[in-house]
C-alpha cells in the first residue's frame, strides 16, 4: 500500500435494486486527507459514502482500506466512523453512555472507558453535559457528541454526512473549525459529503465533484474554483456565462463566433464568471436589462446577440442604467477552459 491510496475505490458500482446509483467509480484517498464529496442530491455522493462505511454492499468493484480489501468486511468490523446528518444519537442513553457505546462493545476495561470518554467529551467541549440525555442538547451539541462518539473509536476513516447543513451560520463556522482541529490533532482521514460548494471549498484539502453517479472532477479547492473542467462544475462553482466551443469557435445564440486566440483542440467550452466580463469596451454589444447592487459590486444582466450575459463591476464605478447600450468583451485569457460540455 502506498500512502497515496490509503483508501481506494476501484471500479465501484453501487445499485439499489435495478437502479444504478454509482457506476465504475475510481478514487484514491491519501492518509490524513480531508476530502469532500460535492454534488447535487442524487449524484451518488451519499451512496458512495455508505458503501465505504459498509452499510451498502457494492454490486461490483473493490474497496480497500490501509492495504486490506474491505469490500466484503461487515460494517461493524471496518474501523470506519460515520457522523450521521441527523446525528443518530441513542435517545435512551446519556451523553456519556452514547460516547462509551462502542468502547463497551469492545469490552474495554471500565477505567479505560471512563478515561477515553472523558477525554473525548472534553475535546468537543461537552464535559459538563455527560449526564444529560441527547434530547436535552442543542443540535450543535448533539453533533459534537456524535463526533466524539465516532472519534473515541479511533477510526481509520471518519465519514461525515452533510456535517454543516443543519447548523446556523455561527455554529457552522464553529463546527468547521472544530472539524479542522480534530483532523489536525488526530490526523484521521476524513471524508465529508455536502451539496454546498462553499463548505467544500472552505474545509476540504481535495474535492471530488460528483454528478449522476460518476466523478466530474477531482481537485484542490483552487482547481475546482478556478479551473472547472466541465460545464456542470463550472456552473456549480459560479461561472454564469458558459458557451460551447466547436471547431475553435464560440457557439452563441446568433451563430458561431471566431475567437481572437486559438484554443487547444480538446476545448469543449469556455466559461466566465460575471466579474470576468469586461464592460465598456470590446467587440460585443448588449443592452442592460437589469441591475442589482450588492454592496461591494453591481451585477448586470445584459441582453446580447450571444444570449443573456451576466456581468459584475465594482460598485465604485458609475452605474449603467437599464436600457443603456454597452460594448463588452469576453476575454479568452481569463476564461475557464472546459474539456467536457455534456
Amino acid at each position: 500500500m502506498s500512502d497515496a491510496s490509503f483508501l481506494s475505490l476501484e471500479k465501484l458500482t453501487l445499485a439499489y435494486g435495478d437502479t444504478v446509483a454509482v457506476k465504475d467509480l475510481d478514487l484514491s484517498i491519501r492518509k490524513g486527507e480531508l476530502v469532500a464529496f460535492l454534488g447535487p442530491s442524487g449524484c451518488g455522493k451519499t451512496t458512495t459514502m455508505r458503501s465505504i462505511a459498509g452499510l451498502l454492499t457494492p454490486a461490483s468493484g473493490r474497496i480497500s482500506l490501509d492495504g486490506v480489501d474491505i469490500t466484503r468486511v461487515s460494517a461493524n468490523k471496518r474501523s470506519v466512523g460515520l457522523v450521521f446528518q441527523s446525528y443518530a444519537l441513542f435517545p435512551h442513553l446519556s451523553v456519556f453512555e452514547n460516547v462509551a457505546f462502542g468502547l463497551r462493545l469492545k469490552k474495554m476495561p471500565a477505567n479505560d472507558i471512563e478515561t477515553r470518554v472523558t477525554a473525548g467529551l472534553k475535546s468537543v467541549g461537552l464535559s459538563k453535559f455527560a449526564a444529560r440525555k441527547p434530547a436535552e442538547l442543542s443540535g450543535g451539541q448533539q453533533q459534537r457528541v456524535a463526533l466524539a462518539r465516532s472519534m473515541v473509536m479511533e477510526p481509520k476513516v471518519l465519514l461525515l454526512d452533510e456535517p454543516l447543513s443543519n447548523l446556523d451560520a455561527r455554529l457552522r463556522l464553529e463546527m468547521r473549525t472544530e472539524l479542522q482541529r480534530v483532523q489536525k490533532e488526530t490526523g484521521v482521514t476524513m471524508i465529508f459529503v455536502t451539496h454546498d460548494q462553499g463548505e467544500a471549498l472552505s474545509l476540504a484539502d481535495r474535492i471530488v465533484v460528483m454528478l449522476n453517479g460518476a466523478i466530474e472532477q477531482i481537485g484542490t479547492p483552487e482547481d475546482i474554483y478556478n479551473r472547472p473542467v466541465s460545464r456542470f462544475v463550472a456552473d456549480f462553482v459560479g461561472f454564469e456565462n458558459i458557451f460551447a466551443v466547436e471547431g475553435g469557435k464560440l457557439k452563441a445564440a446568433n451563430g458561431p463566433i471566431s475567437l481572437s486566440e486559438s484554443l487547444p483542440p480538446d476545448t469543449a467550452g469556455l466559461a466566465w464568471r460575471p466579474r470576468m466580463v469586461t464592460l465598456g469596451s470590446g467587440p460585443f454589444q448588449g443592452t442592460v436589462r437589469g441591475a442589482s447592487f450588492s454592496g461591494s459590486t453591481r451585477e448586470y444582466l445584459l441582453d446580447t446577440p450571444l444570449g443573456a450575459i451576466k456581468a459584475e463591476e465594482d460598485a465604485g464605478l458609475a452605474a449603467h442604467q437599464p436600457g443603456t447600450e454597452l460594448t463588452f468583451d469576453l476575454p479568452v485569457a481569463k476564461a475557464a477552459r472546459l474539456e467536457r460540455f455534456g
Binding site: L55, N76, K77, L82, F84, R149
Partner: peptide, 19 residues
C-alpha cells in the same frame, strides 16, 4: 417514531445487526 439510522450508528460502533 424511532429513526432507523440509530441502528446503523450502533453497527458502525461495532454492534451486530441483531445486537
Amino acid at each position: 417514531n424511532l429513526r432507523s439510522d440509530i441502528e446503523e450508528a450502533a453497527v458502525l460502533l461495532g454492534s451486530s445487526r441483531a445486537g
